[in-house]
Design a protein around this nucleic acid. Structure first.
Length: 185
DNA sequence: AGGAAGATCTACT
DNA sequence: GTAGATCTTCCTA
């Protein structure tokens, strides 16, 4: 399982290095998925950042889960840190590994490719909502955490972020090239 | 009270 | 594949 120090770095670095790792939810159920797409968000210097909208939780320590609602969807973020500025990464898409039947049930569909290929979709499939806001995912016994995946060779594609009104002039969206579960090319 | 928000679903061309 | 409606909570007036 990834230690707190992993998250305590620049969000763009964390966003890239977490690709290929496994997102795990384990409490009364066991769900796993490989992280295939992420985005990085900075603090006050980032026009798209929730920090500017007064999300206090962004000032908590690295490795804190940050969950909020957009257009009727819960989005799952992890707090990171760079130079004392609040920042974070958004998990945009994962590839289902374990608990696929439960994910299908929650999403009410059966095509695997459509199960978790978007930030709002994966939270629904995993049953993640506001209740998990603020948990420390680096702690033992955390119901949600990330662990290292199998080493795989893949190329990382860099793109501009999706959906943000005003983006920064640098690419902050990262995904695994050729993966079917990426939300958008 | 009303609008905005880092999205998704559906119903078409 | 794309456009438009609609999703739900939070923030500001």
């Amino acid at each position: 399982m990834l230690p707190k120090s992993f998250y305590d770095r620049d969000p763009a670095i964390v966003a890239k290095e977490i690709l290929g790792c496994i997102l795990v939810k384990k409490d009364i159920e066991l769900l796993e998925g490989k992280i295939v797409e992420t985005e990085a968000y900075y603090g006050m210097s980032d026009p798209a950042s929730r920090a500017r909208k007064g999300a206090k939780i962004m000032w908590e320590d690295a490795g804190t889960a940050f969950i909020y609602m957009v257009h009727g969807n819960w989005l799952f973020n992890i707090i990171t840190l760079s130079k004392g500025e609040p920042s974070g990464i958004l998990i945009r898409a994962i590839e289902p590994i374990k608990g696929i039947d439960l994910m299908k049930k929650r999403r009410k569909i059966k095509e695997i490719e459509n199960l978790t290929n978007g930030p709002g979709k994966l939270t629904k499939a995993f049953g993640i909502d506001k209740r998990y806001n603020g948990i420390k995912i680096y702690r033992r016994n955390s119901p949600i955490y990330v662990r290292k995946g199998r080493k795989g060779n893949f190329e990382i594609v860099e793109r501009f972020r999706i959906g943000v009104k005003r983006d920064l002039p640098i690419p902050l969206r990262f995904y695994i090239k050729g993966n079917k579960f990426v939300s958008k090319l």
